[in-house]
């Protein structure tokens, strides 16, 4: 677009143009060009979005993340009663649903390397699907402004290999 503009800046007056110009500029460039590009882009975006949705999976793991000013508490469906503060433990290589909620104000659960953001809203539970392909430590932050402690409102996701995950569920590693 900037190129079109630059080109036109150097054009001398094109004599007496009439409504033919309208067809080129408005029908062609104004309507048709963006319509085609945007339909393609939006469709692509939706297809990608569909793929990121939480769907049924055989080896699904469910965990719970509750945010409050300024901490995260995580709970595990596979280990009832077990909670951790500030570190979420998940198995690597398996789909994980994180049920996100809040005990006070709005927060947002964001582990950039694993998934997009999803907000933690009091009274609601939002489900985020993520999957860590390799074991390791993934940093996460809260991504919705929540007061003076916002900057340091961070957590980590610890992805375990199957053996370590089993050990965690059995209560061996903290």
């Amino acid at each position: 677009m900037a190129l079109v503009l630059a080109a036109l800046r150097r054009r001398p007056p094109a004599g007496t143009d009439d409504t033919g110009a309208e067809r080129v500029w408005l029908w062609g460039l104004g309507l048709a060009f963006p319509a085609v590009t945007l339909v393609a882009l939006t469709t692509y975006g939706l297809v990608v979005g569909e793929r990121l949705l939480p769907r049924d999976a055989p080896d699904l793991v469910t965990v719970r993340a509750e945010a409050r000013q300024w901490a995260w508490t995580f709970a595990y469906a596979d280990a009832p009663g077990r909670t951790t503060e500030g570190v979420l433990h998940i198995p690597a290589g398996r789909p994980v649903d994180v049920e996100i909620t809040s005990a006070d104000v709005l927060h947002s659960f964001w582990v950039p390397r694993l998934a997009g953001k999803l907000d933690a809203i009091p009274g609601h539970v939002n489900v985020l699907r993520l999957e860590a392909f390799a074991p390791g430590r993934y940093d996460g932050v809260s991504a919705e402004f929540n007061g003076t402690g916002y900057r340091d409102h961070a957590f980590a996701v610890e992805a375990h290999d199957p053996a370590a995950w089993a050990a965690f569920l059995a209560g061996e590693t903290p």
Partner: peptide, 12 residues
């Protein structure tokens, strides 16, 4: 885009 191209067309 219609507006932008109307403006560029005007310049043209």
């Amino acid at each position: 885009a219609v507006q932008i191209f109307a403006w560029i067309g005007t310049l043209w």
